[in-house]
């Protein structure tokens, strides 16, 4: 028996779809041809694995039952709005996206970074210097400025 014929009928043999005579001839060939026997084992294992995978898949009607159990979406839910925003962003050309990004960065800069650059945060030394200056003016017996620079310690 030729191996080609065997390979042609191997799949049907494993599935049990061949007649008695063909099955007998294949059995006989398997005993005499090592290569075909190996092919037979490989295909048989493959079938086993595919059967396991098939068993893991949900039972028929599973999705229908799940759908029935899920809460129905309220018509008031603003899914449409979010969708439209996302859609708008997707449809926006690149220069538009860049412009919006630039504006966002500018706002962030004005709110977070600029206050620090423009001196919105002050060092306590400034207040201490003012205090010592006033003390020299308003206190009757204050020496001229000796302690004025004590505050510079922290600079």
């Amino acid at each position: 028996m030729r191996c080609d014929w065997f390979k042609k009928n191997l799949s049907a043999y494993i599935d049990g779809e061949v007649n008695f005579l063909t099955r007998w001839r294949i059995k006989r060939h398997l005993k005499s041809c090592t290569d075909c026997y190996k092919d037979y084992i490989r295909l048989k294992n493959l079938r086993k694995i595919s059967k396991i995978i098939l068993l893991k898949s949900p039972e028929p009607g599973f999705y229908e039952r799940l759908q029935a159990k899920l809460p129905r979406l309220s018509p008031n839910i603003t899914l449409k709005k979010t969708g439209s925003l996302a859609k708008f962003w997707m449809l926006l050309p690149l220069p538009g996206k860049l412009a919006i990004g630039g504006v966002a960065i500018l706002i962030l800069f004005l709110l977070v970074i600029y206050p620090h650059l423009s001196g919105s945060s002050l060092n306590i030394n400034k207040f201490e210097e003012e205090y010592l200056r006033s003390k020299e003016i308003f206190s009757v017996v204050e020496e001229p400025a000796p302690p004025l620079l004590l505050v510079s310690e922290e600079r």
Binding site: S120, S121, L122, I124, F127, K135, F138, S139, V141, E154
Partner: peptide
């Protein structure tokens, strides 16, 4: 500025500002 003639107390105030004090 407040004083007793010898000592001085100063109260500063301004709109919210972050004060750096170590």
């Amino acid at each position: 500025i407040y004083t007793d003639g010898l000592e001085v107390i100063i109260l500063f105030q301004r709109p919210y500002t972050d004060i750096l004090m170590r």
